[in-house]
Every structure is written in C-alpha cells, then in structure tokens.
Amino acid sequence: MSQFLQQVINGLSLGSIYALIALGYTMVYGILKLINFAHSEVFMVGAYTGFYTAGALGIEGMEQRGAAFPLYLALVVLMVAMGASALLGVLIERLAYRPVRSAPRLTPLITAIGVSLLLQNLGMLVFTPNPRRYPPIIKEVRFELGGVIVTNVKLTIFVVTLALMLGLWYLVQRTWTGRAMRAVSVNLDAAKLMGIDTGRTISATFAIGSALAAAGGILFGLDQITINPLMGTLTGLKAFVAAVLGGIGNIPGAVVGGLLIGLAEQLVAGYVSPDYRDAITFVILIVILILRPEGILGVVRQEKV
C-alpha cells in the first residue's frame, strides 16, 4: 500500500509539471490551431536560464558552505527564467510563426518542428550535451508518513503549480487581456473586427505560456535532479498529449490531463514495465483521439465546408 501511495505521489508531482507545460500548448492551440513544437524547447531554455541564474547568484559557494539558498533568491531565479522564456516565446512567434500564419495549416506545423530542432541543436551547442545537475535552489527536506516519503520539493511543485494555475484562470477569465484571448480563440477575424489587437494578444499568449513552461522547467530540474538539452522532447510530447487528453484549448482540461498522464506513466513504470512508460502516453493519445477526440473536458466543434 505504501508503495502504491508513493508511486501515486511521484506520479502526481510529475503530472503537475506536465500540466504547467500543457497550459502553453493548449493556449497556443486554442488561438492559432498550431501545435507549438518549439514549446518543449522553451521549457528546456527556461530550465537552463534558472540553472545559470542560480549559478550567477553564487549557489555553488553557498552549497559548499552548507548554507541554504535564500527563498527570495529562489524567487529571483524563477522570475528571471520565466521572463527570459516569455521573451523567447514571443520572439519565436514574431520571427517564425507570424510570417506563415496565413499559409496552409501544415506550413506552420513544419515551421514549428524546424524551430524546435533549431533550439535543440543550439542548446547542444551553447549548453553542451552533458547532463547537468540542477542546483538545489530549495534545500531538500524529507518527511516520512507511514512509509511514504514526501519531500518539500514535491510539496513546492504542488503549491507552485496550483498558484500559477489559479493566476492563469484569473487572468483568462477576469482581465481584459484574457477576454481578448478568449475572443481571438473563438474567431480571429471577428476579434479583429471588434478592435482587438490580435497581434498583441497572440504575443501575450505566447509570453504567458512560455513563462509557465519555464516554471515547469525549474520544477522539473529540482524534481528530476538533472537537465540536458534534449529534456524537452519527450516531456513536451507528453505535455501535449496531456493537453489533448484534457481537451485542447481548455485550461482546466490541461491540468486534469497532465495529472492523469503523470499518474499513468508512473503506475505503468512501477507495475507493468518501465520499458513502456513512454509508450503508455502514446497509447492514451491514440485511444483518446479515436474515442473522444475533443478530450475529457472539451467541446465538439463541427467543421464546415
């Protein structure tokens, strides 16, 4: 029983990270009908920005002295990484996606794959392919409850994910920018006619999604111990599947999907075979797309001629 609970807790913490990344996919897809393949690399860059920022703030010296990294500095690391990724997300949209926005739908998709490859290979060049240990911007403390081990890092993951999710919900439902985003996602041209600056709204969407991915990147680094330039590929795909599972374009759906994927992956790895932990994600994707393509929380939209 304690083993099962342990797997569930680990699965949910992994799932929370997927959820954070999935939000970016779901928001962009909701607005542009584009699978932003480069999102997984934005996540990677976010993790690396956090890595270097913590390094610049002298985390190594503190660790050697046995001192904990102060909380306010940890927040600085988080903010810098989120800011840098937001900028990167906006740049990608401006330079690569905007020029092909009116092209047939496959053109942006291939462009996105190209940007993803480009960032991955640039990452290998700049960050080197060697896996790096993530600096402990939160000093790990362990608790044991009836044979189940929970760390403060895992608790932080739940708290940060929940906080960001609520913030996003507020932003989308209660602010002007959010209203504009929803309008653009329903119909871009009509939104334009209503005087919404669609270019700015799309940029805002990319900025927010990318910032969330960066937060996910830092939490991922803390949870998974190492990062490498290829960390985004599979994680990003799983997060995308989470977005589809929850219903693409649907924000609570992305969260539900993320948690379910994390859980499914961990349980398959623990009780079936770790060899199929990646396969299960794809199996879920295929099954959901065939049985309920609109996802768990999505709504059906009829395509017209």
Binding site: Q3, Q6, Q7, N10, L14, N130, P131, R133, F220, Q224, I225, T226, I227, N228, M231, Q266, L267, A269, G270, P274, R277
Partner: peptide, 30 residues
C-alpha cells in the same frame, strides 16, 4: 530518462542488499 522513482520504489520493497546499475554516469548520479 530523468525519472527513476517508480523503479526505485519497486526495488525498495524487495529484500535486495545492493543495486547493480550498469549505466552511464549521468543517469547513475540521478
């Protein structure tokens, strides 16, 4: 892979006295 918690949780519940991990250093460290 970066997540090994499922496997190690399963190993924890056996009576093994050591773990043979013939991999590369990065994964072994994690």
């Amino acid at each position: 892979d970066t997540d090994f918690s499922a496997q190690l949780t399963a190993i924890k519940n056996t009576d093994a006295q050591a773990i043979f991990v013939p991999g590369y250093y990065a994964e072994v460290g994690a």
